[in-house]
Simulated assay, not measured.
Amino acid sequence: MQKLYSTLIIDDEPLARERLEKLLLCFPETIHIIGFAKNGSDAQQKIEALNPDLIFLDIEMPGLTGFQLIENLKIIPLIVFCTAHDEYALKAFETNSIDYLVKPLRVERLEKTIEKLKHFNTDNISQNILEVIKSLTEEKLETIMTSITVKKGDRLIFIKLKDVFYFEANNKYVTIFTNKDNYLSEKSLSQIESELPNYFVRVHRGYIVNINTVEEVQKYFNSRYIIKLGNNSKTNITSGRGYINQIKNWINV
């Protein structure tokens, strides 16, 4: 008899959660969705409470990444990693221990994941996953992003990250602000966030700031902050309430 996997979907993007749910509903004989989590901390609580057989896990999330979440778990369920980038796609992800899906997810690729679950071998799964995570973490530390590339007409422009003051999400584009010019990127803010070095901090659903360019941080009401940048425009950004922990960790309060 085919196993029915109790499944938790973990992603910080609501649209990504909704899309994955819709795709997984195509496999009712294998997947039973028991809940959703919007970040790593939320996911840890729900995994411990619900004990799912399987999780679909976004790798790069604000606060607690997918890797950090797994390292915090006492019991590790089966994992299908989901991400907007293929930079983590080492050969280990093609083994029977875990699977790896690159967004945007497609039902044809998901079918292969479901088929893999049917023949899954759970021997030493927790140790195997932890070893993979360790290798991926070490791999990522070796490559630090120093510039971001955008298209402008027929040209590719390389923008040095040290010159970027902040990123702002606006409709389907993200604007990159420097003192010289502003540039449009077709990547989502979450995609960009997953690539950036740790001196960039997401302070709002629509903003990521270069903390090296911040001149002043002032407390604001409702657990928010006003972040004053040192660019020519003297930009002030008001943080979102949901990002208070990231900001406190950054300013050490």
Rank of each mutant, 00 (worst) to 15 (best):
L161Q: 00
T113A: 08
K160H: 14
I114C: 05
L130W: 06
C82P: 01
E108P: 06
F120Q: 13
N171Q: 09
N128H: 12
D154Q: 12
T95R: 07
I76K: 14
I133Y: 06
L69H: 01
F120K: 12
S135T: 13
T146H: 12
E131P: 08
V164A: 01
K140N: 15
K162F: 04
K118T: 08
I129D: 03
S147C: 07
T149Q: 15
C82E: 02
Y88H: 15
Q68C: 05
E142C: 12
T178W: 04
R109Q: 09
E111V: 10
N96S: 04
D163S: 13
E139I: 11
Q68S: 14
L156N: 08
K116A: 00
E111K: 07
T149L: 14
T175S: 08
I133M: 10
D163K: 13
I75M: 14
L156G: 00
T83Y: 01
P77A: 02
T178V: 02
I144W: 11
A169N: 00
N72V: 03
A84V: 04
D99I: 04
E111W: 05
K152T: 10
Y166K: 06
E87T: 12
L105S: 00
V150H: 05
K134F: 10
K103I: 08
I129A: 06
Y166G: 03
T137I: 14
L69M: 02
E138Y: 12
T178E: 02
K162D: 08
K180R: 11
K103N: 01
V174K: 07
M145K: 14
L90M: 13
D86C: 04
F165S: 13
I114F: 08
L90C: 09
N182Q: 12
V174I: 11
K162H: 05
Q68D: 15
A92M: 13
P77S: 02
L141M: 13
I176T: 05
Y183Q: 00
E94W: 07
S185P: 01
Y166M: 01
V102D: 08
Y88N: 06
I176A: 03
H119P: 02
I75N: 15
C82I: 15
T143G: 06
K112C: 05
K172H: 07
I157D: 00
T178P: 07
T175R: 12
D154N: 13
G66R: 09
I114N: 04
T113I: 13
K74F: 05
N171R: 09
E111T: 10
L136A: 10
N171F: 05
D163A: 11
L90K: 00
T175P: 01
I133R: 03
H85I: 03
V164G: 03
K140M: 13
F81S: 00
F167L: 01
R155D: 03
E87P: 08
R109N: 10
E71N: 14
Y166V: 01
N96F: 05
I75W: 10
I125M: 10
I148A: 03
D154P: 04
N128C: 11
A169K: 00
S135P: 09
K134Y: 11
Q68K: 09
E71L: 05
T113F: 06
L101Q: 04
V107Q: 07
V164R: 01
L110Q: 06
Q127L: 14
N121F: 04
N128M: 12
E142T: 14
L141N: 13
I129E: 02
P104N: 10
F167Y: 02
I133S: 04
L101M: 13
T143Q: 09
N124L: 11
K140G: 08
L105E: 03
Y183P: 03
E108Y: 06
F177I: 15
T175H: 07
